[in-house]
């Protein structure tokens, strides 16, 4: 007797959270081929232990987080190397985080200001207790030895001889 066509049964079960309303776990994952495009020099810089900002030759405005065009005149900016020392402009200690960073809590985020630079740079501060962190405190950029080719390749610490 000919058998009716049928789909094969699925061996692996489905995780059910609730029967009514029926709630199941579904998974979604994606790998991007993410290009930093025009910002590539910044990430190359991190791997070489350099923090690159950009400046507008026309407006004389300096961006600590690089932008390849000036936000005032729209003209092209030029890359320049930021000082490795700056000061804390603002900060927080995170005790909760986005899922990807939950395993790293508590961690400290800082906005760093550099002398003579008009905008700020967001990064991590490492090795300073919450009670010791103050706005205006000197911080120094450190770079990971093994590049991850992300903005996480730079972080900040308190300089050893802190002459505040």
């Amino acid at each position: 007797m000919p058998t009716e066509p049928r789909l094969p049964e699925i061996e692996r079960g489905t995780e059910v959270f609730s029967v009514d309303p029926l709630t199941i776990r579904t998974h979604f994952e994606v790998d991007y081929l993410h290009s930093y495009k025009q910002d590539t020099p910044f990430f190359h810089g991190l791997a070489k232990g350099k923090l690159l900002g950009s400046h507008c030759p026309k407006c004389r405005y300096k961006f600590a987080t690089p932008r390849v065009h000036c936000m005032y005149c729209g003209g092209p900016t030029q890359w320049f190397e930021l000082p490795t020392e700056g000061r804390i402009h603002s900060w927080t200690v995170c005790y909760f985080a986005a899922q990807e960073f939950l395993k790293e809590v508590p961690f400290t985020l800082v906005l760093v200001e550099f002398k003579g630079v008009d905008t700020l740079f967001l990064s991590r501060l490492v090795g300073v207790e919450r009670r010791d962190i103050k706005i205006g405190m000197k911080v120094k950029a450190r770079f990971r030895r093994k590049a991850t080719w992300t903005v996480r390749d730079v972080y900040f610490v308190r300089p050893k001889r802190d002459a505040d």
Binding site: W91, F107, L111
Partner: peptide, 29 residues
């Protein structure tokens, strides 16, 4: 925590999110 991550994707994903940036942290700063 995943919801916080989705919302954090509404910040710059090259410069702000990868350092552990998310909105509670931004507003705190």
């Amino acid at each position: 925590a995943k919801g916080n991550e989705f919302i954090a994707l509404a910040s710059d994903t090259d410069y702000d999110f990868p350092v552990g940036g998310y909105y509670n942290g931004y507003y705190a700063m």
